[in-house]
Amino acid sequence: MINTISVMLSALFIRKALLVGTLISLCAALLGVSLVLKRYSMIGDGLSHVGFGVLTIATSLGMTTPLYVAIPVVTIAAILLLKIGDRGKIKSDSAIALISSSALAIGVAVTSVTTGMNTDVCNFMFGSILSMSKADVIISVSVSIIVAILFVIYYRKLFAVTFDEDFAKASGLKASRYSNLIAILTALVIVIGMRMMGVMLISSIIIFPALTSMIMFKSFKKVVISSAVISIVSFWIGIYLAYVYNISTGAMIVIVNLVLFILFTIIDKILHD
């Protein structure tokens, strides 16, 4: 095993993947806790479909770094989704389904007209962390670091707003500002995370670590820390297994997360019965 790991680490593309993947896993887990608690789990899924639509269009227009377009568009979509959920006539889950399937349809339609189902499109669908360009790496690393720093700076306020929005507002906090912050950070993580996990699987790394941690821990701080650890460890185990058995990395990461979730559930049952 140690041999395999040292062979893995000797390859530059794996080292790049490890760096980016670790940071994205961290950010996804941090945000995941708030999203799951606020019942916004499906937003990740919806946004990734929007991301797919944008990426396919950008690629078909011949852009080499489609992330430059995807980041702003998905961010706007995230804010819109939250706003609709807050006070729209359409319920937020239906709104997400509407927007995500439309974006996916547009993406698929554009693909059929232009390039067809080529490797690029497949990579968007299922992730391709091992084939990232230098620009992708730089964007992903900087965005992740910004997300993590903002999370730490606003941790206390995010807790207050997530736990009790009315109390936070009555205390003078601009609650909608923090909901928007969560939406923007989520959009950023989704877009850069799509490279690693793919459209179909990205929402799992946001939801799974938070859910798994909430089985075991009963304080917000512990849940946040545990989510971060679980997310990063799942990523490492996932990428190792994917490399050894030649399985899609994104899929493997989700499976590791699933196994941990089941394991924690069983341990919790045994401990509390």
Binding site: L37, S213, K218, S219, F220
Partner: peptide, 10 residues
Amino acid sequence: SEIQSHFPAS
């Protein structure tokens, strides 16, 4: 609020 009945917070 409904959220608080499952919220992990000390």
